[in-house]
């Protein structure tokens, strides 16, 4: 691992991906989940298909930075890369935006720590 200053791999070429990165490069899992839930399969698939071949390169590029030193201009790539985890099942297993054999996923509220019960 190296620092931003001596990063060896240049930032990947993203031309042609800008719209996808802008749409899916959202900073939290929750935001990426709601992006999936508000998209249709065509949109999800076109994002997935455009990103998939680039993914190993993106991860290797981001991997060369310490986590807290990923350059600002690479954040969107990082978040869009994580968004691929969010659309994976929809594309590869369900052929559907939501899992119709589970509870509404929004009922599961992310916790902040072990005792977190929200407002008591």
């Amino acid at each position: 691992m190296s620092t931003a200053a001596n990063a060896t791999q240049p930032r990947p070429e993203i031309s042609g991906l800008e719209n996808h990165l802008a749409a899916w490069g959202l900073p939290t899992t929750e935001k990426r989940l709601s992006k999936r839930l508000s998209s249709n399969m065509e949109e999800v698939r076109s994002f997935y298909d455009a990103m998939l071949p680039r993914l190993p390169e993106f991860i290797e590029y981001l991997n060369q930075f310490p986590l807290d030193a990923i350059p600002k201009e690479a954040h969107q790539i990082a978040w869009a890369t994580l968004a691929m985890c969010e659309v994976d099942n929809a594309v590869n297993k369900w052929n559907n935006i939501t899992l119709d054999t589970g509870i509404d996923i929004l009922r599961m509220i992310p916790k902040k720590n072990f005792p977190d019960r929200g407002q008591q």
Binding site: M1, T29, I59, L62, N63, F65, P66, L67, I70, A78, T81, L82, C85, E86, D88, N89
Partner: peptide, 15 residues
């Protein structure tokens, strides 16, 4: 996680 790759792995596992 100490690297982005591990964050990616974690995100996949969480989801």
């Amino acid at each position: 996680p100490t690297s982005f790759g591990h964050v990616f792995n974690m995100e996949q596992g969480v989801i």
